[in-house]
Every structure is written in C-alpha cells, then in structure tokens.
Design a protein around this nucleic acid. Structure first.
Length: 861
RNA sequence: GCGAGAGUGGCGGAACUGGUAGACGCACUGGACUUAGGAUCCAGCCCGCCUGAGCGGAUAGGGGUUCAACUCCCCUCUCUCGCACCA
C-alpha cells in the first residue's frame, strides 16, 4: 500500500472532526473524577509565538493524557484582553483598542485551533467584555465595603512633557520612551487592595502546597518577607515628638549614633522646615526622587545624605543623635526611618565615614577586639555585647528577646513582626482596563456605584493620544455622573484596574463561563471543578500573578462564592523560550524578519544584537510558529517543542533539529502503513503464549516503553525522554526481522507494538495517531481510548550488566541473571579475567556492592 | 543591587534517590540504492595517545566530603527570570 504522510490534510480533517463531534466539550459529571487542567491564558498581542506553543503543547499533552486515563477533563482557553499594548496600538496606528484586541483574538484563536489543542472552546472568555468585568466590579464593591479596597496616596512615574503616567516598561534609563524627557515622580491618590490582610495565610499555605515547585514557594516566602523585630521610639531632642524605627537588630541599639530617614519621607521636610538647611534639604530630596529605587539601595551605590539640623535621643543610652535624610533608606519599608549603627552595618559604616559621625562598638567578636580607630568595615557577625548597659556580656543573638522585652516594659518599644509585602496598588490612569465602580461626590465623598447599576461600561468613543493623563478623565459623558446617595452631580472615578485583577479569578469563571446571575460564579459548578488540578505557565509569573490569584481565591472564599483555600493544587512553571533582541538606531526593536544580514531592512543600518531575553511582542524577539506548521504540520511543531528540552528549562530558540522530529513521524507513519495489511486482522496477543528470542525482546521493549513513557509524563512532565523512548521502540520495530505473513504469533506481537506506539504518542501528536488508529481498523475515538498499561513481568529483564570498578574506575563488565545473589556477583567480579590480573599483586581493602549496578573493589599496593 | 534558578560533545539534550557520563535526536563524514535526492537504508561521530585490545583526560572554573560526585558542601565566573504600572 502506498500512502504518504500528508500532515496538512490529516490535521485539518481531524480538527474539524473533533469540533463537530464536540469531543472536548465537557460538563460536570458526578460519576467521573474531574481533572481541571489550565494553562495561563495569553495576552492577545496579535500572533502566537513559540513560547505559547511550548506552554500550550505541554498542557495539551497532559489534558489528553488525563483524558485517556479516564478523567473528566476541563481544559479551557480565554484571553487576558485588557492592557497597555492595545492602547499603544491605538496611539501609534489610530486603531481602537477594542478593534485591535478582537482582531488579535480572532487571529490567535485560529492559530491555536490549527495546533489541534483540545480546548473546550464553548467556555472561551475575554476579560475586556462587560459580562466578565461586571463581576470584578461587584467584587470590588464587596471589597470596598469590607475595607479590602481603599484609597491612599502613592507615587507614579510621570512624564512632564506628555503629562501622563508611565509604566515602568515605558521608562528607559530614566527617560520617557515616547518623548525622551526626564521622568519624575508624582503623588496621586490611588486604589489599593489590602493583600496584607491575608499575609499570614498566604505565608502559611506556602508550606501546604506540595504540588508547587520549591523555588516558586521560596520566592513567594521571600517576597512576603516576614521578619521578627522590634519597633523602637527615639524621642526628638526638642521634645516635640518621637521617631519610630523598625529593626531586627535591637541588639545593636546601644551603638546607634545617628538617625536616617528616607529622603521622600514627609518627616524630612517637616523637620527641616524654617531652618537654614531647608533649601539644601529640598534640593536633595528632589535629586534623590530621580534616582532609580533599585540602584539606590545597592551595595555599590554612593551613600548620600543631608543633615536636617535636628536631633533625637537614643532610648538606650540617652545620647544625642543627629538626624539625616538618606538615599539608601526606603520610605515604604518599615517606618521609613532607620537607626544607624555604623559599627555593625556596612551601609551605616560608609555613611558615618563620609560624614564623620561617631562610632561605638557594641558587639565584640570572640577572636579579636574591635577598635573604632582602626575599623575598615562594619562587623556584622555575632559576638558578645559591650557598651550595652544592662545587657553587657550577653551573647548578642540571645539578647535579642531580652532587649525587646526591656524596651517594651519601659514603653519605648514593642516586639513587632514586619513584612516586606505591600498592599497591591491597582489604580491605572489608563483607558483599556476595567473601570473602578466608584463615584466621587462633593457632598458625600467616595460613593460606591450600586450593584444594580453594574456594569460600569467602558465608553467606546475615546480619543487616545498618549498625552494628558487618563483618557477617561477627559471623556465628559463618562465622568459626569449622579451621586447614587444624594442625587447631585458627581464625578466618576476614572482610574481603571490593574490587569492582574482579571487574571486573579479567570480560572473560577471558566467553571461557569456564561453564568449571568450574581455573583457570576455558579457555586455548584465551582465546587465540582475547583481547584485547578494542574496549572501550567511561565516561571516569570512565579510571584505576582500567582500571589495575587492566591489572595483573590482566599478573599472570594471568605465572600462565600468559592469553597477552596488555594486555586492551584499543582503548578508546573515552564522555562522561558528566549531569543536575542535586535534593534536599529532609527526603528527601535526589530522583528527577526526585519533583519537581513545584520542590517535593518527599512534603513539598511547596522543592527545591534542585544541580550537574549524571553520572547515577547514588546521586544519583538518573537518567532511565529506558522512557518513550522506550513512546512511540517502541527504535529511536528508539537513534538519538536517537547523534544527540544524538559519543560522547566529555559530554552534559547533554534529550529535546528525540527527535521529530525518530522523524520520520526514519517518513520512511524511508514512502518505502520508497511505492516497494515498483515496486522489489520491479526488477533490481539494472548498472554500465556510463551515467546522466545526476538519476539520476546520486542514485547519486552514494548512494555518497558509503556512503563517509561507513563512515568515520564505522570511523574515529572519530561516529554523529551518519553519521546526518546518511543523513538527507541520504533527503531526496535524497524530492526525486528519481518515475520512471515502467516506467522500469527509474531504479527500479533507486532500489532501490540504498533498500537502501543500510537497510543503513547496520541497525546503528543494527536492528528497522525488518530489517522493511523483509524487505518488499523479501530473505530473508537483515540482521544477516549484507555491509556495502555504494562505487565511488569513482561517488562522485566532477565539478564543485567554489572559494572566492575577498581578504585572507582570502570575496569570491566559482566552479565548476570537479574536475580543473581550478591556474594556470587562479587566472586564473579574478582575472578573476571580483566580484573583478576589487575588485583593479583594488590591488597583488597574493601568491596562495595551496589545491587543490580556495580562492584567496586578498593585495593592498595 | 536584592531574591530565585541554570551551566554536560559542534548543537538540543540523557544520566530520576551519590553508582557504566553522552540515551534519543540534529549537524557532520563515509558507504548503499537511485535519472535525480533536501527521500530512504547502513556505518562512524567527546578529546588525546596507540596499529589494536587498551590507557589517560573531560560535566563553566577552583577547592572539599566520599570506596564512588554532572549529582552533596564552600568560593568564583557566565547566562536567564522576578523586583510590585509589561503581562
């Protein structure tokens, strides 16, 4: 039979078949075990890239595998559809964000469908639709009522020329990416979500998520940053109040010789007001505000400060301490004020040296004596307390509690717990986001929009220029509202919500995607599907998205709309697909296809190759999979992405090797077609028939492959080694001597092997396998065929190879029956020809036997 | 800078709990078949020495623990992700 592998024809036919038969549409079925598999939904940037293909292929394999294992699998897909790029497109190309977004969605949906992913498309959602964000607005109102949403003043990046707020991404080296002006800070009153109300639970559950990668949990714990310490009060010398500091090093308080305040802290201007230094202080504060926050606190950054002409008193010693504003203290951690102990903190040490401030040693190391005259750096390790009043002579670490208690009892301090985690700022002065359902009335103040008036719909006719702040704020019909409380004219809130809010609950919405009655989530359906059994997405989201989703889940649980504590039982964080960035002086970042022979195709300028970064539309270092699909088909694109590396590893994109994946599918296709006539009617292999030689070996290999592939997929998602194992099985089939056409026994084993290859590959390359399955005369949908199981007896080896080492170096190998006794193996090792003469004139000191692996003979001359 | 990871042949990777380093594939080389080949099949393929059996070296670099280290510990280098307004 001549039949060539034609991926395009096969794939489109099967995709149509799955869609028409609604194979992947699911409903709650109490008789079946559910499995909710979710990949992080994409931002509709326009076209999918290899990073998406990798992510969604991994998910699809697991979804299809679980389905074959008998689970009722929920596998939905949707769009994280609000966000800045749509607004940028509007500014740059004059296209409406909604039009742009929907065109992108249509295109990406087409691309995903062409990949053959097993989504239940009936649950598709886009977060920019009012039927999605109306519920988010309702949750906002509930949060507002409970004090979980509140307003406070905080800073944003501000471009004075464009008169607009800039995202961090829009600030390049301190300059506005559009106009190049210097970016400053501006205070705005903004909305926050009180994630800190859940900080302890978020932290606690980090130890109750065994299905999460350890490194993600570590990052989250560090991000939350719980530290035990002490809050101390330092009275101002003029008696007008006191300065509170948070410290984890209260053991060093007796060595505190000056006080540092974050430059942007309001106290800085308060203390210097009306004094000679006021002008200098103001200048300093302005200067520091322009410095990059990340750099300011770095070890190598120049420490700078200015004296505020004010003093406070050390609560331990009563000593007068000058107060400075400093660049390396952050306003939003702790109290924004730090007691400086130059002898035991390196930053304080450098600062003290620069401004000639006094040093007092309060911790002496065990092995030497510190001297303030000769110290060249701070001593930060443990030791014995000196110059420390009642704590003299104590071990510094043991004194921590005693010192905290001492100040607590005298009312000058208290033990506290400090977190690094801050509340979540969700206000965005942007158009393309979910409106915050609040009205501001002159008489009544901040008034929530009544639930019955939801959704607050984002108006369509808005002009986007990139200048002049929030576009919504200039849209009069939107801004002009009536106060729901007093009925007088009022102003609508024009901030929109951070897009992380939408992605914090979309997984809930998928469970009842079209539920249009309050609260937008059908508790019964959520109770069936939630939590997500397996969540898959990039490691880039290790902290923010995952932490926000955890927070939101706990909050919705407390609102009673949800019955789970955590959203994602198991998490797989895939590594980034990276590629070098390229840019030209005139045209900025360039797509790979805009570069030819290291020149920009638009202006022929030389192209600068930048560093390798994760693929993203904004850096334009993206590779569209369409060319792979055109040349080889979706199955090849799928298997190649998986074969390239294990999922958790970062991957620098290269299509080298894609031919090999295509060749493998062709080899698989050919061997099945080749055997088709002979095995079509072959009786299934009956256990009990005794096999010998090649036939036995092929059957063993078949069952070993089932074992290997199952554990690679189930245990650790290592599809690359699973694929290798199937490749080996296909190779074995090619090497298997062709049985005579009446050799029923051999042909039935061949049939078993062929079916096994198809079944094991089914989740990975679903189209070619469906086709081959049908050609074999099978009528049931492959997607629902049971995953094969292996017989441990059949899979077990009779003979094993034992390595013989002398002093840890491999010197020989012997083959022994798998159940050979250890002593016997050691004896065989010693008498092995190659070994015997090498140890003949030496003394055996030790023999190490590792069962079924090796014998190591340790000898001495 | 801080936090979290990663580094193995020319390339992607394998070696799962400390026990044969380089499975599987790409690229390359030689051969077979062919009007032709970017098809297919067979063979070779970490480096060095040797005709060969074999010997030595090698998992970013340096040190350590161990009978035994890609794997565990310490230091250094390079790369990636995150750092709260990219998503």
């Amino acid at each position: 039979m001549e039949r060539k592998y034609n991926p395009a024809e096969i794939e489109e036919r099967w995709q149509k078949h799955w869609e028409e038969k609604r194979i992947f549409n699911v409903t709650e079925d109490p008789n079946k075990k559910k499995y909710y598999l979710l990949e992080m939904f994409p931002y509709p940037s326009g076209r999918i890239h290899i990073g998406h293909v990798r992510n969604y292929t991994i998910g699809d394999v697991v979804a299809r595998y679980k389905r074959m294992k008998g689970f009722n699998v929920l596998h939905p897909m949707g769009w994280d559809a609000f966000g800045m790029p749509a607004e940028n497109a509007a500014i740059e190309q004059g296209i409406h964000p909604s039009v742009w977004t929907h065109e992108n969605i249509d295109n990406m949906r087409r691309q995903l469908k062409r990949m053959g992913f097993s989504y239940d498309w009936e649950r598709e959602l886009a977060t920019c639709e009012p039927d999605y964000y109306r519920w988010e607005q309702m949750f906002f109102l509930w949060m507002y009522e409970k004090g979980l949403a509140y307003k406070k003043s905080s800073t944003v990046n501000w471009c004075p020329k464009c008169e607009t707020v800039l995202a961090n991404e829009q600030v390049e080296a301190g300059l506005c990416w559009r106009c190049g002006s210097e970016v400053g800070e501006q205070y705005l009153s903004q909305w926050f979500f009180r994630i800190t109300a859940y900080v302890e639970e978020l932290l606690d559950y980090c130890d109750r998520l065994p299905g999460w990668p350890e490194r993600v949990l570590t990052m989250q714990k560090n991000w939350i940053g719980k530290s035990y310490g002490c809050e101390l009060s330092f009275p101002l010398a003029d008696g007008t109040g006191d300065i509170r500091v948070f410290t984890t090093r209260q053991d060093t308080v007796f060595g505190a010789t000056f006080m540092l305040i974050a430059a942007e802290h309001p106290l800085v201007l308060d203390l210097s007001r009306g004094k000679d230094c006021e002008g200098t202080v103001r200048e300093f504060v302005e200067k520091i505000k322009k410095q990059d926050k990340k750099m300011r606190t770095s070890e190598y950054y120049e420490k700078e400060g200015v004296f505020l002409d004010a003093y406070c008193l050390n609560p331990g010693t009563g000593r007068k301490m000058p107060i400075y504003a400093a660049n390396f203290v952050l306003a939003d951690y702790g109290t924004g004020c730090v007691m400086a102990v130059p002898t035991h903190d390196q930053r304080d040490f450098e600062f003290a040296k620069k401004y000639h401030l006094p040093l007092i040693v309060v911790i002496q190391p065990h092995d030497r004596a510190l001297n303030v005259q000769t110290m060249t750096e701070a001593y930060v390790d443990e030791g014995i307390l000196v110059n420390s009043g009642p704590f003299e002579g104590m071990d510094n670490l043991k004194a921590l509690d005693a010192i905290a208690a001492h100040f607590e009892s005298s009312g000058r301090g208290k033990k506290t717990i400090q977190y690094r985690l801050r509340d979540w700022g969700i206000s965005r002065q942007r158009y393309w986001g979910a409106p915050i359902p609040i009205v501001v009335c002159e008489a009544c103040g901040t008034v929530p929009v009544p639930e019955s008036d939801l959704p607050v719909i984002l108006p369509r006719d808005v002009e986007l220029t990139g200048e002049g702040g929030s576009p919504l704020a200039r849209h009069r019909p939107f801004v002009e509202a009536t106060c729901p409380r007093c009925g007088k004219p009022a102003r609508r809130e024009t901030d929109t919500m951070d897009t992380f809010v939408e992605s914090s609950w979309y997984f809930d919405r998928f469970c009842s995607a079209h539920h249009d009655v309050k609260p937008g989530l059908d508790r019964k359906k959520l109770d069936y599907w939630m939590p997500v059994d397996q969540y898959i997405g990039g490691i880039e989201h290790a902290i923010l998205h995952l932490l926000y989703s955890r927070f939101y889940t706990k909050m919705l649980r407390d609102f009673g709309v949800l019955g789970v504590d955590e959203p994602f039982t198991n998490l797989l964080t895939q590594g980034m697909v990276c590629k070098e960035t390229m840019r030209c002086a005139q045209h900025g970042y360039l797509f790979p296809e805009e570069v030819r022979e290291e020149k920009c195709v638009h202006c022929n300028c030389a192209v600068t190759i930048g560093k390798t970064e994760k693929m993203s539309k904004s850096l334009k270092n993206v590779v569209d999979p369409d060319y792979l699909i055109k040349a080889y088909g979706a199955d090849t694109a799928r298997i190649f992405c998986l074969f390239a590396s294990p999922p958790e590893k970062d991957l620098e994109w290269s299509d080298q090797g894609v031919d090999g994946s295509f060749r493998f599918l062709n080899r698989t296709w050919r061997i099945v077609i080749d055997y088709l006539e002979e095995i079509r009617d072959a009786a299934p292999f009956e256990d009990g028939d005794s096999l010998e030689g090649d036939i036995k070996a092929l059957r063993r290999k078949t069952h070993q492959t089932i074992r290997k592939v199952t554990s690679d997929i189930e245990g650790r998602f290592h599809f690359n080694t699973a694929i290798s194992a199937v490749m080996e099985l296909v190779n074995a089939l090619y090497q298997f001597p062709r049985p005579a056409s009446d050799d029923r026994l051999a042909l039935s084993v061949v049939r078993e092997t062929v079916e096994t290859v198809i079944l094991l590959l089914a989740p990975i390359v679903p189209h070619i396998t469906e086709e081959l399955w049908t050609l074999l005369g099978r009528t049931e949908a492959l997607a629902d065929v049971e995953w094969p199981s292996f017989d441990p007896t059949v899979a077990s080896e009779e003979m094993i190879t034992i390595v013989i080492q002398i002093n840890g170096k491999v010197r020989s190998r012997i083959n022994v029956p798998a159940d050979e006794d250890g002593e016997q193996i050691k004896a065989l090792a010693r008498s092995d020809e190659k070994i015997a003469w090498q140890i003949a004139d030496k003394t055996i000191i030790k023999e190490v036997y590792v069962p079924k692996k090796l014998v190591n003979i340790v000898v001495r001359d």
